[in-house]
Amino acid sequence: MRILLTNDDGIHAPGLDVLEAIARQFSDDVWVVAPAEEQSGAGHSLTLGRPVRLRQFGERRFAVSGTPTDAVMMALRKVLPGKPDVVLSGVNRGANLGDDVTYSGTVSAAIEGALAGIPAIALSQVYEKEGMGDSVPFSAAEAWGAKVVGPLLQAPFAPRTVINVNFPPVAAADVHGIRVVRQGFHDYARGSVVEGTDPRGYQYYWFGLHGIEHTPGHATDLEAIQDGYISVTPLQLDLTHDASLAALAGRFAG
């Protein structure tokens, strides 16, 4: 089995080492192609206005001077000797839950694999507070990663779908189990914009993270993480709202 690993935290991110350890429990044919620098929040963006450069860091280990999408495209078209059997993206430092998946470079890297017809899984480690940097604990992902990925590798993937996995911000021993759940939606008003002044006296703004809302009575990824479970959510890339097709078509009929 050939496995392609990527992320949005960059080639030197601790979570990528965690992901590689997980992947090597299933195969020795593991390739790493990741952004050279952190690309959190890059979404499914593609670099078009400047050249993308490729740098090799070791056998089957490469960095790309671009986005997570760039990294997967370069892996599939220039680096790997053949098509991988699966794309694993992560393990991200921080949650990719609810509607935040639309911003996520981690999820978008998996999406690029899915668009190429390859089963793809995004993995993220939730943490409790801001400002932790590289001290984010990955114990839940380390202990449970193979337990989640193993069954998924045996599962059939519908075309143009990805699996989004989030590990809760608890010690491995405190994880209650695994839930397959729907994507939730955050309360948009909970986002924050942090305002400050730089050393030269100019004002700046920094987008802050928001907390995870509990959604009682709803089987969503937000609730699963809040309850100490690993969330597993299948996402589809077809964004068409089928229920609106007929009504909109009627607006333009004869």
Rank of each mutant, 00 (worst) to 15 (best):
L152A: 05
E38V: 12
A110G: 03
Q203S: 15
G10P: 08
S27Q: 01
A173V: 14
S124W: 02
S135E: 09
P168F: 00
S27D: 02
G254Q: 10
V64N: 07
I225T: 14
N92E: 05
H214R: 12
L5I: 00
V170K: 04
L237C: 12
E223P: 10
A172Y: 06
P84V: 03
S40Y: 10
V148R: 03
Y127G: 03
R2F: 06
D242F: 13
V181T: 14
P35W: 01
L248M: 08
V52C: 14
D9L: 09
N92M: 07
P156N: 12
L237Q: 11
V170G: 13
V148K: 04
E142C: 04
A71Q: 02
L237F: 12
F252N: 06
V86S: 00
R60Y: 06
V165R: 05
A243K: 11
R61E: 13
G117E: 02
G15S: 03
D28S: 15
D70A: 07
L46H: 13
I118T: 01
Y127N: 11
G133Q: 06
A122L: 03
P35C: 09
G196E: 13
Y127H: 14
V136F: 01
G43Y: 02
L222M: 11
N164V: 15
P199S: 15
D174P: 09
P137Y: 06
L237K: 04
F26A: 14
A158S: 10
N7M: 01
A63G: 15
L76F: 00
D134R: 08
S40N: 09
E213R: 13
G131K: 03
P169N: 05
A243P: 06
G150I: 03
R200L: 15
A21C: 11
N96Y: 05
A155F: 03
A122F: 00
T67N: 02
R55S: 15
I225P: 08
I22R: 01
D198I: 14
T6G: 04
V107K: 00
S89T: 05
V33E: 04
